[in-house]
Amino acid sequence: MGSVIRLADQSFGPRMNMLIAGGRGRSFGSTSYFAMRRLPSILQCELWNAAQAQPPQATTAVVTDIGNDILYGRNVETIITWVSECLARLCSLNAKITLVGLPLARVRRLNASAFYFFRTFLIPRSRMDLRTTLQRAEEVDQRLRDEAATCGATFIEPHSSWYGVDPIHLRSSHAQAAWRSYLSANSHNVTAQPKVRNSLYYQVITPHERWIMGRKQQRPQPSIHLAGGSVVSLY
């Protein structure tokens, strides 16, 4: 996360106001669980109220990691309805939107053994099979392209080289390249690779709201203040 924040600050700062609804396994429309952590859905989190409360300003948005909801067993219509609502809210903010497609080139190379291993490891509650997952992934990706064309968003197809053995999470060595691509779709200032110190710091900051082992944690936002005057809020 630290590199992404620094890349965004490089592109849109100084005095950037960055709102992030992130977290592994995050769902667009339902509560998500990862290990001992629970997060509200992207549509239900406080990010939207925070965004509406901001004064009018140039806004850029990146919408990604949409495939999580396929492994949660959500059907195509449900997923697209959630993403469409997200895009509509961003359009109401006059945002320039980059919509990132699914890593189909990498997912298509999965065999059954690898699929069930990663499904069990990443989302133990999932009961999706490989064939259904691939079918839904293909349809969701095409529908995302249609949604991008409809709302005027820039669609980006992820490179298969950005992924390693894990077929859905960016390799750490390629994450900066991927995010430079995402951010440069609506900016021409993303060039150098930022050096991030204390990267673990960004991983442990409490967002606006989460549950750890059933205990609710909250933190006022913004929670990250950069030297150039930019602030970052986590939801």
Rank of each mutant, 00 (worst) to 15 (best):
S3Y: 05
I5L: 10
R6A: 13
Q10F: 10
R15W: 07
R15H: 14
M18A: 15
G22V: 00
G22C: 03
G22M: 00
G23S: 08
R24C: 09
S32G: 09
Y33E: 04
M36F: 14
P40I: 04
L43N: 14
E46L: 04
L47W: 06
A50F: 15
A51H: 08
A51W: 10
A53K: 12
Q54C: 11
T60R: 05
V62I: 13
V63F: 02
D65Q: 11
D65E: 09
I70Y: 02
L71Q: 13
N75L: 06
V76R: 06
T78M: 06
I79K: 09
I79R: 10
T81I: 05
C91M: 10
L93P: 02
N94P: 01
I97Q: 11
I97D: 08
L99M: 07
P103V: 03
L104A: 09
L110G: 08
A112C: 05
A114M: 07
F115P: 01
T120H: 12
F121V: 05
I123K: 02
D129W: 00
D129R: 07
T133F: 14
E139T: 15
D141V: 08
Q142F: 05
R143M: 04
D146E: 11
E147M: 12
A148S: 11
A153C: 06
T154A: 12
E157R: 13
S160H: 03
S160D: 13
S160G: 13
Y163K: 07
Y163H: 12
G164A: 02
P167M: 01
L183T: 11
L183A: 09
S184K: 08
A192W: 03
R197W: 15
Q203L: 10
T206F: 01
R210T: 15
K216Y: 01
Q221L: 11
I224T: 13
H225N: 03
V232W: 03
L234I: 15
